[in-house]
Design a protein around this nucleic acid. Structure first.
Lengths: 233, 233
DNA sequence: TAGTGGTCTAGACCACGGT
DNA sequence: CCGTGGTCTAGACCACTAG
């Protein structure tokens, strides 16, 4: 039952109950869950509130609605629309996901006489299991960001660290999109078929003063969609 | 204003209006849009309906809500659209190249009760030899663009024809980028290795009145770079 | 025809942010 | 304090699906 005096909104409480029921197997894949009307009576809340709970679970990819038929369990792979760079952590937090980073490599290296901190991370979400969504390789110039290599970026956001500790704000990004074949590492991390081509986005992030803050290469999991909106004239 | 008798839901109509206002620059980055109450009064609909429109735009990443403050434009706008979206012919002309189009397929077909003119073209440049850069598949709705199938698009630009003959101006474009493997056709046209993955951009072009003008799928040659500039905040 | 989800109204009270 | 967004109620009518 729901607690109407709880700080937690009713739709969230219901959402949690439904999610647990689904994950516990009370409702099986492609099975109907109770109708909106039934749920609103059972929990003594309005249909509007039930709909909000269900809408969120549809967004999360746990449920699927079919007009005139009902609401079905639909445990498909989640497709995340990622069309931006800077906000991976924030993007997932807004969706009530728990972002995860795993550091794969770290190195100080010199390119063309300039010293860089190179860090490779697998990034994803923690749900029932860990699902990795991207593999990010970053090159951060040590002259501009001294000591940046002393951070633990398995828990912190690189962008927030640059903003807070160095008072540098990322601005323009130049990026290119390239197709690539998977390799041993991507197969291991994304658990995809070796034949599946992947997307690789390479970019340079500049501060508003025009300084090069970061060079980055992002390999996207096949489960991620790369979408955007723009204009032509 | 909104049309309460339209088949299109009110929240969608409002959503479209707000989206266009944002993309056209009526509201600038980090600027407040009118409050939910103001919008509900202006368009004579309830706050619930306004909220649904805004919620969708927040999901799309065009808006950001802040409790107690208001709703802000939060747009990571792509400044430079893909170089051949909407401007392939003009783009090449400006570079003193000779654009070439070869029609591969043409067909009138019906999708979900709507009639479309489907045209597949290989597009490229004529230098010493012909070099094809993209394979474009366009679906043009015949109810909106009657007689569009009577043109010879091996010499004319689809966009210019739409602008001049139908007085419709392309505006927003929603697009997704996907990696794909080559096939017999791409190998023949681009003369690439079958193992090479390619980029496929799929998009929908809308007019400024929100009508769907074209669905398009573009396969890029390995010789083409897909680049753009954007911003993070 | 009965039941489902899809949309919408006209209210209400609350929590948050800035004055 | 007032205006903002966040939640919720108790209805209503519609469009779709299936028996």
């Amino acid at each position: 039952m729901l607690n109407k005096n709880d700080i937690i909104p009713l739709y969230m409480q219901l959402q949690r109950i439904l999610k647990e029921d689904i994950l516990k197997g009370k409702y099986l894949q492609d099975e109907l869950i109770p109708s909106e009307t039934q749920l609103s009576k059972k929990y003594d809340i309005t249909r509007t509130t039930v709909r909000k709970a269900i809408a969120n679970l549809v967004d999360e990819g746990l449920l699927r609605r079919e007009h005139g038929k009902g609401t079905f369990v639909s445990l498909r792979q989640v497709n995340y629309s990622i069309w931006n760079f800077g906000g991976f952590t924030d993007f997932l937090r807004k969706k009530n996901k728990s972002p995860i980073s795993k550091v794969l490599e770290e190195e100080i290296m010199t390119i063309k006489g300039r010293s860089y901190y190179k860090i490779v991370r697998a990034r994803g979400v923690m749900e029932d299991a860990i699902e990795f969504l991207t593999i990010d390789t970053s090159f951060l110039p040590l002259d501009l960001l001294p000591g940046i290599d002393q951070n633990d970026f398995s828990t912190k956001s690189i962008y927030n660290t640059i903003k807070k500790d160095y008072q540098i704000t990322p601005g323009n990004v130049e990026l290119g999109v390239y197709p690539m074949m998977g390799n041993e590492r991507t197969v291991e991390i994304f658990d995809h078929d070796l034949q599946t081509p992947l997307l690789n986005v390479k970019g340079t992030v500049f501060s508003d003063t025009g300084q090069e803050i970061e060079k980055v290469s992002i390999i996207y999991s096949p489960n991620v969609e790369f979408k955007m909106t723009t204009r032509v004239d």
